Amino acid sequence: MNFWWVNQNQTWQQEIENGYLWSPKSKSNGAYNQFYENMRHVKPGDIVFSYFRQQISFIGIVQQEAVTAAKPSEFGNAGSNWNTEGWLVPVEWHHSPISLYPANYIDELRPTLPDKYSPLQRRTGNGLQCVYLAEVPPEMAKVLLAHLGELGQQILDPSNAQNTEDELDISAEEMTLLDDFDLTEDENSSLDQELLARSDTSPEESFAASLSQSSAVRVEEPVIRLSEYHAERIEQLEQINELERANEHLRRRIEDLLRENQVLRQQASAKADIIPQLRGSLMNFWRRVSG
């Protein structure tokens, strides 16, 4: 089992909702790109860390090797300069109850970063924009998984996998989408028996099977509903941004008015000083005329 890191800032929603990775086969000018070439090296059972908005919130299990596929239509205008022929890798995505911000742990991660094709900046821990799919060394993967709670521990040690909502579900605080998808006691009992029957499988197979079984009801449906949820969240964020822009515009306008008021005060003060001088000059003038 190998580990991979995918930067999905432009297409995370489409790729996660539809269960895949997609990249062009080469740069727009036809040049070789190692991060696109890595798509050909992933194998079923490999683990993928999904990185967008400076955090890791989803972990994927590769289902099949890469196949040639056209650029997905759901990308829309995203990647408008990409070649239309590329690689597609089917992936089963699972939401992590704990969102990991790698920059917060760069001191731990820095010694484990690969010398070449690192997905993170060594100094800051921020993601590199030029990266799509990068290989993650095992030691780096261990650090990341150690900070991903029970789901990370389950990947590190599949033999101790526990099928609880806290491990596999989208957290109520983050998504609140799973209230209607609890398994009954009979379903849980049946699931436990199936997992016991799988005790002779390999660690990778055990992990993939336990995730697939325990998330069949509770995870797949919310993933389908992510589009509606995120559309609502994006709309809320846009409204907040609009209010912030309006507030900033109002603040600047108030500052302008205060400055204008200060100028008017200075001008009025100057006029007040000039008026007595004018009055004195006029009186002297009329004295001379009348005299």
Rank of each mutant, 00 (worst) to 15 (best):
M1R: 13
N2G: 11
N2S: 15
N2W: 08
W4G: 13
Q8N: 12
T11F: 01
Q14W: 02
E15I: 00
E15S: 08
I16A: 00
I16T: 10
N18Q: 14
G19H: 04
S23E: 00
K27Y: 14
S28H: 13
A31T: 13
F35R: 11
E37S: 06
H41Y: 08
H41M: 12
P44C: 09
G45E: 12
D46A: 10
V48I: 15
Y51N: 12
F58D: 11
V62N: 04
Q63D: 15
E65N: 03
A66T: 02
V67D: 01
K71G: 02
A78D: 02
S80V: 09
N81L: 07
N81R: 07
W82I: 05
W82G: 00
N83Q: 14
G86S: 06
E92C: 04
W93Q: 04
H94T: 12
P97H: 07
P97N: 06
L100R: 03
Y105H: 11
I106S: 03
E108R: 04
L109C: 03
R110F: 04
P111F: 03
P111S: 01
L113G: 12
D115F: 08
D115C: 07
Y117R: 10
G125I: 01
N126D: 05
N126G: 06
E135Q: 15
V136K: 06
A141N: 10
K142Q: 13
K142A: 15
L145H: 08
G149K: 03
L151G: 00
G152W: 02
Q153A: 08
S159L: 14
N160G: 12
N160R: 14
N160M: 08
E165D: 09
D166F: 11
D166E: 14
E167I: 14
E167F: 15
L168E: 07
E174V: 03
T176V: 02
L178K: 10
D179A: 15
D179H: 09
D180S: 03
F181G: 02
L183S: 04
E185K: 01
E185C: 00
E187C: 02
N188Y: 04
N188G: 04
Q193F: 10
Q193W: 04
E194P: 01
L195S: 00
L196K: 15
R198K: 07
R198V: 06
S199H: 06
E204C: 09
L211A: 06
Q213I: 15
S214L: 07
A216S: 07
V217Q: 09
V219D: 04
E220P: 00
I224W: 06
S227Q: 03
R233W: 10
E238N: 11
E238M: 11
Q239M: 13
Q239W: 14
N241H: 15
N241L: 11
E242P: 01
L243N: 14
A246W: 05
R251G: 12
R251D: 10
I254H: 01
I254R: 09
I254W: 00
E255F: 00
L257Q: 00
E260S: 10
L264Y: 02
L264T: 05
R265I: 10
Q267S: 09
Q267R: 13
S269V: 00
S269F: 06
S269N: 13
A270I: 05
K271Q: 07
I274R: 04
L282H: 08
M283W: 06
F285I: 14
W286V: 12
W286M: 13
V289G: 00
G291N: 15
